[in-house]
Design a protein around this nucleic acid. Sequence first.
DNA 1: GTGTACCCGCGTGTATACACTTCCGGGTTC
DNA 2: GAACCCGGAAGTGTATACACGCGGGTACAC
Lengths: 244, 244
Amino acid sequence: MASRPATEAALPNLEKRSGKQRRKANDQTIYESIYDAVLTQRLPPGSKLPEVALGELFGVSRSIVRKALTRLAADHVIEQRPNQMATVAKPSVEETQQIFEARKTIEAEVVRLCAGALSKGDLQSLRQLIKEEKAAHESGQHQERVHRSMGLHLFLADHCPNRVLGKIQRELVLRTSIVIALYKVAGVQACFLGDDHSRLVEFIAKGKGDQAAALVREHLDTLADLLDLKDQQSTIDLASILRP
Amino acid sequence: MASRPATEAALPNLEKRSGKQRRKANDQTIYESIYDAVLTQRLPPGSKLPEVALGELFGVSRSIVRKALTRLAADHVIEQRPNQMATVAKPSVEETQQIFEARKTIEAEVVRLCAGALSKGDLQSLRQLIKEEKAAHESGQHQERVHRSMGLHLFLADHCPNRVLGKIQRELVLRTSIVIALYKVAGVQACFLGDDHSRLVEFIAKGKGDQAAALVREHLDTLADLLDLKDQQSTIDLASILRP
DNA sequence: GTGTACCCGCGTGTATACACTTCCGGGTTC
DNA sequence: GAACCCGGAAGTGTATACACGCGGGTACAC
């Protein structure tokens, strides 16, 4: 049983979430289930994803599973190597920093475009999201809080007037969440940084694009600093250790 | 024969390029072949891509073709609808403008990061690319010129220190090329705009990131202005035409 | 002549069978 | 005792068979 602990431990969690929907899942369902499991750390980085097991779990054949895995690989959620089981992506420290830098560039532009361009209803939804995030935070519901916190950034991505930039932003938000799950130090309340979110929404509401962009950059820098990027387990230099 | 002219006319062009490699193509080969055919307009937007025909053409089964098509759809090169043949993407005017705007944001940052960070050899390669582009331009080799011109931007994407941003840039360059192929007015020498490319490389060589970024934005604006975005065939307002 | 309903063919959606590759474990040999 | 070799189990890679959905064409009715 020690041969593939990640698989045996995590795969059942996939069905736990959605109950007994073992029948007739399509590739989109599988895609979202795995994605969500990765984000909530039920599937930690490096977890193995055997096609047959997934197929049995969702009640479909490997064809569907393979399609979902191909899409997940295209979105950098998992890694596929020839003749080997797919594994949940395990971004390096370097890649993590680059993801944050890239997101700073894109999200700054996204909020700039959003500023003054969102409807009253959109702003209302944003304020509601922040309220729910705080509530989840205070009641200690980890998964809920992660979803709400990420939800604000996803909302901005989905409502950016530039749909192309919005989709890029969405992908980066999700990748960011993965690395946060990977490198987050225990106890840190990621992305719940003071009232950054509240201030950001107000800047957007008042059409102050430049200030919103600046705040986002600062917000992401603070977030990146909270990560424990010193943990270099995956980049151990065997030579320096074993050399006499 | 009028039922699917695009397919019958264009699909044979796929094999024409690679000669007689009808044996044992993998999904990567198919992916690249279709991608290249789209970029060089051998497969114009809207072209149908039947799985069986592609399979026979490349000597593989539909499984491989489907994998390639799934990846192409993820990269916005083709569009897949349930129970319908995949078609080459046909970006709207609005999406085209958004692609250019997004690329301005990303590429400006990419060249800023490249400035002063490229090796002597890289700069040498860039200057060589520009030379080849000019040569292809003057000798009237359309396909070659398109490749070289795009090649400079792809080179910058691939050599950007931030690999994440580089990959986003690469995708946007390719999508830009698609819309250029789609909306280019006859006779326009797209992306061969004076000595923009030469000046850009020199800015990068001298580490003048801000000036390089500014030039890129200007370059892309000029390029977008050359397109005939008034052509709204796909968004015809029937009401305004048929109303008495 | 026109409108409608049915049928058939083409193409995709899904499942499954089989071949190949990889990895692990035991046995043998030096 | 250690290293190498070999065999089998598990998993992916690919092809193929069959089911389903859509669209066009024809025949029939009005």
